[in-house]
Amino acid sequence: MSVTENTEQATVGVGLDPPEIDHEAIAAKLARPGFFKRNVWSFVFVVELIAIFAVWQFIAGTLEWFNPKFVPPPSDVFTELWNMLPLVGDDPITEHIVFSVRNFIVGYIIAAVVGISIGLLIGATKVGELLLSPLVWTAYAVPRSALAPVIVLVWGLGMSSKVVIIFLLAVFPVIVNTMEGARHVETSLLNAGKVFGASRTQQMRKVFLPAVLPFMLIGLRIAVVRGYIGVLIGELVGSFKGLGTILRTSAFNFETSVSLAVVIILVVFANITMLGVSFAKKKLAPWHSEEDVLKSR
């Protein structure tokens, strides 16, 4: 805009006047973009999400293109979700949620402790690497979830078989990440510690462990997803209780809205746990940044 004004002036006037500088326009250009402009894509996403739900509601609920038993409208799903919630719903599934989440927590903690110990043993000692790492890689290649029927046969339909499955699925990301992290600790750091007279325990505690910590936490974060998949596999193969059981019975009763509500509950739980681990990583290892090409855009 200002450019055209200036040229106009130049042709009209004698041509000696210095062009007027539009300070306000420049300041406006340099200023931090406004709240709306900064978050424009978030708004677009919210609008998009609302639009998707509206179209889905319209097609499935109003027009009934599909049998609502197969493709329920979102309103049904959210009503079911509300009904299922503990404390507020009419038909709370507290018992099942507690069963699943408790299994997850027990299996995950065992996996974390065992995984970190084995990972450190392999990563920190040459003998461990020599003898244990081929075993770990072999076991890693086996689809452990395929063992679920055998595990249910051995440990029964109760809690223990679920914990074993969750443990087996969650332990390997922890082991592999810890051991790879430990293997790639910079030797210059360890040497520097040695030069400054750190004892063996001090080297371990102050140099080695902090260097491995971020990788442990990455492994623990991957293990969250694996753990929840383990919860589901265990309960789908054979169980009396738990979210997976509800998922199975509701799908077989053609109550797809209930199934979708359970899926939403699961996604929420898995994401809360993941966020917790990510938060722990940010607090415990703030120096370590992951390059995530896609999310940084």
Binding site: F70, I229, L236, L247, A251, L260, L266, A270
Partner: peptide
């Protein structure tokens, strides 16, 4: 968000 859905969870509904 779809990536966050554990794929096993869709198995019973896939039958439907």
């Amino acid at each position: 968000s779809l990536y966050a859905v554990p794929w096993v969870a869709l198995r019973p509904m896939a039958t439907v």
